[in-house]
């Protein structure tokens, strides 16, 4: 089975107070942030590698971004991807429509039975890139996939709906899936593995290599402004050493008749 995994690199914004808005108000300040692979994409790669280990075939990792984004491709190569392609263009804040058009062009050049995306990204979190690409490619898709079993010509998937409900599908290949967290336990990628992956080929392409030009790609939505979210009401904070805070909280709970 030939698999293509589309992955991206995102800033680590797990700590709330590191996010600051750039003076342009079109971006956040990124120069002092650390970067990482998109959380969902770790599950994508794990799912892809597990399928490859089970069924054979090839795995190609694809990303669109500047040079630093090679980092996520190296991870993919270290995990077991056979090849990696980076389209050298910063589209991270662009209309996903444009990104989808670029990816369509890349994927069409490659052999594939299955295309995998993360269900969403940690930065913009629109969650619609994968299904857009599927539509352009003209192949079936399923989003939010939490269980996946593959056969030679088809796959059985379960999508995660609301309130603990799963939805089952059988889909003919080729197909595109967006992968949800929890579908597997992504393995740790060792630094040794990443170093060894430096030997593997990493292909860099430009938009013109794909017969595209940025000017011809007109966005349908436009980012107007970024702001910090308005401050909501804040919890009454209990401060002190754990003993003290625990004591105060216990009293509050008791007074509230919890126990």
């Amino acid at each position: 089975m030939d698999i293509i995994a589309c992955i991206k690199r995102v800033p680590d914004t797990s700590e709330a107070d590191v996010v600051k808005i750039d003076p342009s108000q079109k971006d956040i300040e990124k120069d002092r942030l650390a970067f990482k692979i998109n959380d969902w994409d770790e599950y994508v790669l794990e799912a892809a590698v597990q399928l490859k280990e089970k069924l054979g075939g090839t795995l190609t990792a694809v990303t669109i971004g500047p040079k630093e984004w090679d980092e996520v491709l190296r991870r993919a190569l270290a995990m077991g991807a056979d090849s990696a392609i980076r389209i050298d263009q910063d589209v991270s804040a662009d209309d996903p429509h444009i990104v989808a058009i670029i990816l369509d062009k890349v994927i069409r050049r490659l052999p594939y039975d299955l295309v995998l995306f993360g269900a969403q990204s940690e930065d913009f979190g629109s969650g619609h890139l994968g299904a857009m690409v599927a539509e352009i490619l003209g192949i079936p898709h399923a989003t939010l996939v939490i269980n996946l079993e593959a056969e030679e010509k088809k796959i059985h998937v379960q999508r995660e709906l609301e309130a603990g409900t799963l939805q089952s599908y059988t889909i003919d290949l080729p197909a595109l899936l967006t992968i949800h967290t929890g579908i597997n336990q992504p393995r740790y990628i060792s630094m040794g593995g990443i170093r060894r992956a430096m030997q593997k080929e990493l292909q860099v392409m430009s938009l013109s290599d794909l017969g595209l030009s940025l000017d011809a790609l007109t966005p349908m939505v436009k980012l107007e402004e970024m702001r910090l979210p308005p401050k909501g009401k804040e919890a009454e904070l209990i401060t002190g050493a754990p003993e003290e805070t625990a004591g105060q909280l216990a009293k509050i709970l008791k007074d509230a008749g919890i126990f």
Partner: peptide, 19 residues
Amino acid sequence: ILVTRSIYNGKANASYSFA
């Protein structure tokens, strides 16, 4: 029509306009 989205896992907001 304009819309606001919550980005970076709720740590920022972004507003968008449409072509």
